[in-house]
Amino acid sequence: MKTYTDQLGREVVIPFPPRRIISVVPSQTELLYDLGLDEEVVGITKFCVHPEQWFRQKQRIGGTKQLHLEEILALQPDLVIANKEENTAADIRYLMERVPVWVSDIQMMEDAVEMIIKVGEITGRHEQALQISKDISIRFSDLLKNTAHSKKLRTAYFIWRDPWMVAGGDTFIHHIMTEYCGLENVFAGNPRYPEVDAGSLLSSGCQVILLSSEPYPFKEKHIAELAELVPGARIMLVDGEMFSWYGSRLGKAAGYLQELWKLLYNCQ
């Protein structure tokens, strides 16, 4: 048994290495796979779509916000990997009283890199985690060299429809937008994921609207719908995983964000 500190500052006693892991966060599930784990992971959520073979084969224990708690306990996990934002506090408290739970809390890139390294340490995959984190850091450093001096476009990032909801200023999405994509989040003054209406959109003066593929699956038809509300704004569909998945997928995100930046700023 070893004691680890999670990103809430809690000390968690975990068998080393853990042999029965449940991940209740999609981006962290993919990280476990990229760290080289397989049989050790005994449960995932219905939203853990990467890797595809795990999505088809591993036992699913509910959604991130609606965990099947008794199914989780029946799997006798020696580690549950959770997240402060993506899981409900009540579910996580219930599990904490019964099994070891390590919780991440991601606001910035530094938090994501720290999480990757710590999960590597906990699972006995320290060297693999260091390589993944190093690769991500290099890729985003290169991205920043191109985007840092852009004149920031006023942007709204939509995550939901009916009601319309956007990413506020204290989210990982906001951090990626503003620090790495040369964008200004027009709703940065709002916490978490505020609801917005036509009036607030118009008054925001947004030049760009990004429609995320998740959690709401925006499609082409929604571009026309928003174009009526905000005439003159440039509206684009974007891959939400590249803005909000803070695990090993960040290694792919840097290239995607680079291409998006080129499109937005008409770079060759």
Rank of each mutant, 00 (worst) to 15 (best):
P163N: 06
K2F: 14
I209Q: 01
Q131V: 14
G63P: 07
Q57V: 14
E85F: 08
I92R: 02
A227S: 13
T171S: 10
V113G: 13
D78Y: 02
Y246D: 04
S133F: 10
G9T: 14
L69A: 04
E259Y: 08
L210E: 00
I173W: 07
R192D: 15
I81Y: 00
Q53A: 11
V196S: 07
E225Q: 13
I122S: 10
F55T: 01
Q128A: 15
K145T: 07
K58V: 06
L201P: 04
T29E: 08
R93N: 07
L183F: 09
D239E: 14
R234N: 14
R249W: 01
K145I: 07
I22V: 15
G168M: 04
K84I: 11
L264E: 11
L35A: 02
L237W: 03
S200W: 12
N190Q: 15
F140V: 02
E85Q: 14
E241K: 09
P17H: 13
N83E: 09
A90P: 10
W160A: 12
H126T: 15
V42S: 09
R10P: 04
V166P: 04
T155R: 03
T3Y: 13
L35T: 05
L67R: 06
K145H: 04
I138E: 12
V103D: 11
N146M: 12
K221S: 00
K65P: 05
R161W: 11
Q66V: 01
V103P: 04
E11D: 09
A90I: 10
K58M: 04
A129P: 09
K151I: 03
L32K: 05
M165I: 09
K134V: 04
V196Y: 14
A74F: 04
F187R: 09
W261T: 10
S200K: 05
E121Y: 05
E71L: 03
I223S: 00
